[in-house]
Design a protein around this nucleic acid. Structure first.
Lengths: 355, 355
DNA sequence: CATTAGCACTCGACATACAAGAGTGCTAAT
DNA sequence: ATTAGCACTCTTGTATGTCGAGTGCTAATG
């Protein structure tokens, strides 16, 4: 999708040749990480003009904010603005080869016991395929309603509480009880609770205990009461999003992270899940989202690009998966890969974890 | 515990003064990471002799293999052998302050829903207190016997299988069934399975299906059959050890890791859980274990020391927790901290996850 | 005989200098 | 409008020199 003439903000036109030069610089820089000069452009990319002409074009492109010079008399490198233009208009979206896509889907299907494992596995694959650092955020549950609760005796003083919420996320908690309850008694309590609480937001639980429960189930009042905070806590835990990151050390492969302090700040940032969570949760839920360099809020990744895609289960967006790496990123390859894995991931979760 | 004269392998004696010099070098190097010269030793540590004497002693110590010279005319640094001697004989074990220990235990108690969380939390605290990278390996289950199995209906085509093994580790799996089973039917199957299988190794399951089961529970044969691989898999999953590591980026604080390739190799090593697992599982289960430098098997950490302690639940060793960092490690502080956290951890798990 | 002072020597760290190479910007010619 | 040519700039790499910390040896000392 190559638009021959792009009218930019000011009255300077980006004509076809400028775009070609820009594209050449971007392409070269993405692959080599070295500033590129006019002579090299004219030699490597057959634009049919001499290096001097390209020099003039590059000078213009610098004035327009698309190119940067790391220092005088060095070659030029693309700016964030250039990458943005590239991603929005210039990039030919590379279709991920069908066979490869099938292979990836097969890999994704290796661990499908638990939804968390699937996700972590997806992150691993994504990082391996792209050679960048990958991120994934687990399905999040908007509002927690109880679907089912089950009490299972473990020994005389402990009861396993299994809680299933409306999105079929399961949570276990061990509960210590003071009274020794028989299996039958526990079954009765379970049944009662299920009947009363199914589909209700968890807050109802308090009221129930206060009112009807006392008559009907007086004997178990204490147990049920001790259950409430537990169920509450468990539901909260379910709501708590978890983030997976894989391939952090890939960052070492990029020359721009060849100095300790940058590498440290990047890795620390990825290790510190809370800021990641912030980014992934608050930056919108478009199908595919591309944040380039300074478009990112956190200083630590202002020289990175973050590409995320949402995945959907039964048509509902429930999580995100993505890739983070230097702004000099193989956008077309990464974008198509992230998209494809996000789709597969959604399919797999839909198929295996919902009816 | 300072032994005045240590007879070493060959007939060279390590007299009191040599030990003091050695201790001085070790102390200085542990805190500064700089090679230390004779003059500095004589100035900083009042040994009552001149730098020339110390020079001679240091020369002897080098011949004995306790000191190394990074290059001619540089100061000297301790060898692995020196650290070993230090740890075994010279080090005054620093008692961790009681108040601090109480604070740590309090921190350890913040997340005690799941044993895995407790462990991860312990690793976090350990890394934070020591400023090194911490490792923890989750309780491992030697042989998996079934304690309890429970089938809970989720919707028409899915059943939640809750499996509890003899160590009270709980595992959930979603099972798709072809036939629509009522809650009562599921309860009957659960009861039957529990009765038949409690305390038995999982292999029995196959036989049961073959023989008695067919008569008694003919109607549910298909469901039960589809259950078998699932239960198997879940029990295997429980056996699978998980490792937690925290504070990997602490490695950047040490000047010896100020070059990319070393940092990369260290972090990659920690990220790659399988080799960690190997080390933690196969290197013996002494109460406290100290591996110094080349005593470690893996090349990637031949310049590191690894200090691990086992934690016990009801007197039985079930896991390890530890710290890894440069051989120049604050041994006395780290050892006492690791020991103390391991003990607390054992107590907490015993108190909260066993009867 | 152990200790010490003194001195020559070694080697890394750091600074300076210099040449090579890549790239730009400008100008004049096409 | 394009291009060739040239002067200029700036980085990178190499060579060189100096400084300081530290050693090892020897001779003097108590």
């Amino acid at each position: 999708m190559l638009i021959p003439v792009i009218i930019w903000g000011d009255n300077m036109k980006l004509d076809d040749r400028k775009l070609k030069v820009l594209q050449a610089v971007i392409h070269s820089y993405i692959t080599s990480a070295e500033p590129i000069g006019s002579r090299t452009v004219s030699k490597k990319y057959n634009l049919g003009v001499s290096s001097a002409t390209i020099r003039n074009e590059m000078s213009d492109l610098e004035d327009l904010g698309f190119l940067l010079q790391p220092y005088t008399s060095a070659g030029r490198i693309p700016s964030d603005k250039a990458y943005r233009l590239y991603v929005d208009n210039l990039m030919k979206s590379s279709e991920i080869v069908l066979k490869k896509r099938k292979d990836i889907k097969k890999d994704l299907l290796t661990e499908i016991n638990e939804v968390d494992k699937v996700l972590q596995n997806a992150a691993k694959i994504l990082s391996k395929v792209t050679n960048y650092t990958s991120l994934a955020i687990a399905p999040q549950v908007k509002q927690s309603k109880l679907k089912r609760i089950e009490l299972i005796p473990i020994d005389d003083f402990r009861v396993l509480v299994v809680i299933v919420n409306e999105s079929d996320v399961v949570k276990n908690t061990m509960l210590r009880v003071e009274e020794n309850l028989s299996e039958n008694q526990l079954t009765r309590i379970s049944k009662y609770l299920n009947q009363k609480l199914k589909g209700k937001p968890i807050e109802s639980l308090y009221k129930e205990v206060e009112s009807g429960l006392i008559k009907e189930m007086y004997n178990y009042k204490r147990t049920i009461e001790s259950l409430i905070p537990l169920v509450n806590q468990s539901l909260d835990n379910i709501k708590k999003e978890t983030i997976y990151s894989e391939g952090v050390t890939n960052i070492f492969n990029f020359p721009e992270y060849n100095n300790i302090s940058k590498a440290k700040s990047f890795i620390s940032f990825i290790e510190n899940k809370s800021s990641l969570l912030d980014i992934l949760l608050n930056d919108g839920f478009d199908d595919i989202q591309i944040k380039i360099g300074k478009e990112n809020c956190y200083d630590e990744i202002k020289e990175c690009s973050l590409i995320t895609a949402t995945y959907r289960v039964n048509g509902k967006t429930i999580g995100k998966i993505g890739v983070i790496g230097p702004t000099r990123m193989e956008y077309s390859k990464v974008i198509s890969t992230v998209k494809s894995i996000a789709m597969d991931l959604g399919d797999i979760i839909t198929d295996n974890f919902t009816k």
